[in-house]
């Protein structure tokens, strides 16, 4: 039996880089999709609003684990090789897009109505209204909850382990298979996740206070 040692810790830390990378992919993809969903949700066209809210209901009503399996096996169906990183990236993007879209819709709607009216009076068209007036203010409101949601993304990348992507959680399982010290190993894994997530949680809270103090 292998003794739990520095090598194993190093292995976990290297795997944690994949967790970070996957989180960044999910956040970047989720941000693009989320912005589109949020804008659709506040659109004047009923069809777009309906589509976006249907999408959100669908994603928020199924477990991420199932989304992960669907994209993993779905990629196989359309003839692509089963690459765990791609499947994990896609499903986390779909997931993050739905949640960020809903968060950001709230933030866009939280911009006072008078701002719309004032920019209307100045003769700005809809694109200009969004670009110069509404979105800059919405971003300010959106920053704390978005940082808070990044914690969810980092934690949920752990599910990518089930389709064989070797990130932190999977690395923990692999080390455990050779050393059989689950309590120590998974505590280490939990500590690394905590080290990644806690600063984000604190940042979200601090930002929240600042945004509210400004009003």
């Amino acid at each position: 039996m292998n003794q739990l040692g520095a090598n194993h810790l190093l292995y976990l830390l290297i795997a944690a880089q994949w967790t970070v990378l996957l989180s960044l992919i999910a956040f970047a993809g989720g941000a693009v999709l989320g912005l589109a969903i949020a804008l659709m949700r506040v659109s004047k066209l009923g069809v777009l609003r309906g589509l976006a809210s249907g999408y959100i209901q669908l994603v928020q009503g199924t477990p991420l684990l199932i989304l992960l399996f669907l994209s993993y096996f779905g990629l196989g169906i359309i003839g692509l090789k089963l690459v765990p990183l791609v499947a994990a990236g896609i499903s986390l993007t779909l997931y993050a897009g739905a949640f960020l879209g809903e968060i950001w819709r709230g933030c866009i709607e939280a911009v006072p109505k008078t701002q719309w009216e004032a920019s209307d009076c100045l003769g700005l068209n809809r694109v200009q209204q969004y670009a110069y007036v509404i979105l800059p203010q919405a971003v300010r409101i959106a920053t704390p909850p978005t940082v808070g949601f990044m914690v969810q993304i980092v934690k949920n990348t752990s599910l990518a382990s089930v389709i064989g992507f070797v990130e932190l959680a999977r690395a923990g399982q692999i080390v455990n298979n050779s050393t059989f010290e689950p309590f120590a190993i998974f505590s280490c894994v939990a500590a690394i996740y905590f080290a990644l997530c806690y600063p984000l949680s604190v940042a979200a809270r601090t930002l929240e206070r600042k945004v509210h103090a400004g009003r």
Binding site: V151, K155, N156, S158, L159, S161, A169, G172, F186, V189, A190, Y193, F194, C197, Y198, S201
Partner: peptide, 8 residues
């Protein structure tokens, strides 16, 4: 709240 449910 700062660790994944899977690890818990």
């Amino acid at each position: 709240r700062n660790t994944p449910l899977l690890i818990q």
